[in-house]
């Protein structure tokens, strides 16, 4: 999916008088199927940028075009619907629902769609199979290792074939080998569906896999180029 940010700014108001700028004048275009790594020191605004891209929060300034729609002026409902239909999230801390078994975690994004229950369940199980966890479908997150949990999260993020996959340090909590497996899966599955991937990362190996590395510092993009 084409994503186009221009002049995006985000300011957090701490009080009446104190405003903290988190993002300043961000211009970024992502083509369909592109894999972009956001790198930069902690607090440079990567997560805030992902939140804006993922419609979890609105920018304070600028324009955000998703395909042909202007998303910067979305209502809360429009944001939610758009998240459900076109965006997938992967978090550093997995963020699975602790009381639900794996398959229900994966199926959750599909519950906002008008498909039959059987189809949804089928698709959830297929997604679990795609990440190699079909045999763990009935396990709860606490019964799984970190790598397995993150793979469930990957299955959840991709189960509704999102056009845009946003990942915030997806390998941050995993050992290098597991991290590589999870990354392989993301790349493989996103490639299959033509999903654009934008990931924030500290991990040079993740950046190395990306087709494009965008470096941020202090709320602004300082370099935008091919991965090293």
């Amino acid at each position: 999916m084409r994503v186009e940010l221009s002049g995006i700014g985000k300011t957090y108001r701490l009080s009446e008088t104190v405003e903290v700028p988190a993002l300043r004048d961000i211009d970024l275009r992502v083509r369909e199927g592109e894999f972009v790594a956001l790198v930069g020191p902690s607090g440079c605004g990567k997560t805030t940028l992902l939140s804006i891209l993922g419609l979890l929060t609105l920018p304070s300034a600028g324009s955000y075009r998703l395909e042909d729609r202007e998303a910067a002026g979305f209502s809360r409902n429009e944001m939610a619907r758009c998240r459900a239909s076109t965006i997938g999230f992967i978090f550093q801390a997995y963020n699975l629902l602790p009381r639900e078994p794996a398959w229900r975690n994966v199926m959750f994004p599909l519950t906002f769609r008008a498909e039959t229950r059987a189809t949804r369940r089928q698709r959830a199980l297929e997604a679990l199979e795609a990440v190699g966890l079909a045999h763990r479908a009935n396990h709860r997150p606490a019964q799984m290792s970190g790598g397995e949990q993150q793979r469930v999260a990957v299955a959840r993020a991709l189960v509704n074939r999102p056009k845009l996959l946003l990942a915030d340090e997806p390998t941050g909590n995993l050992d290098s080998r597991t991290g590589r497996d999870v990354l392989d899966m993301i790349v493989d599955l996103a490639g299959r569906f033509g999903t654009s991937v934008i990931t924030a990362t500290h991990d040079p190996r993740v950046a190395a896999r990306a087709g494009r590395v965008v470096e941020m510092s202090d709320g602004a993009i300082v370099s935008d180029g091919a991965g090293t």
Partner: peptide, 16 residues
Amino acid sequence: TREIGIWKAVGATDAD
């Protein structure tokens, strides 16, 4: 609260 955040991230509306 965190779960509510997850719900919203994957598409739950305020009404949901």
